[in-house]
Amino acid sequence: MSENENDFETLRRLLALKRHEVPPPGYFENFSSQVIARIQAGETGSESVSGVSWLLRLLQAFETRPAYPVAFASGLCMLLLFGIVSVEQNPEMGSAWPTPNGSYVADVSGLAPNASQQFGNISNTNPPVGLPASSSLFDNNPPANPYFQQVSLENAN
């Protein structure tokens, strides 16, 4: 090892230059009082900053390790994709589909059979009326509806 020490003698002399690097004049005069001031400030202020320290540590981790923000963003994308796929596969989960005229119709098929009647009783003061089932949507002879009234526009002009 002593041979190696001799090999590095020039390097060691070069490293001596580091000992000549000195901080600004008077730097150490106030150093200890700054440390004591920080200790005293820490005793009173440490509790208030502890709440944000975890957030700072998280941000520092994001800054220093690029893998963390990438993993975080990937996780978010996966969560979003999972949400989209599960909604498409199971429309009952959140079915509010737009109709051709732009309004939205909520699918209440999954509700209890008497739910609409119950809601009708709450929001409508009229007695519930049972409509007979129609054979076709464009039936020429609509079923007798007590609220249906045929209106003719021919003589309007």
Partner: peptide, 16 residues
Amino acid sequence: NDLDFNVEHNPDLVAL
């Protein structure tokens, strides 16, 4: 940091 004044009197460093 700046180098102190003694550096110019260090024979090893001056030699370098």
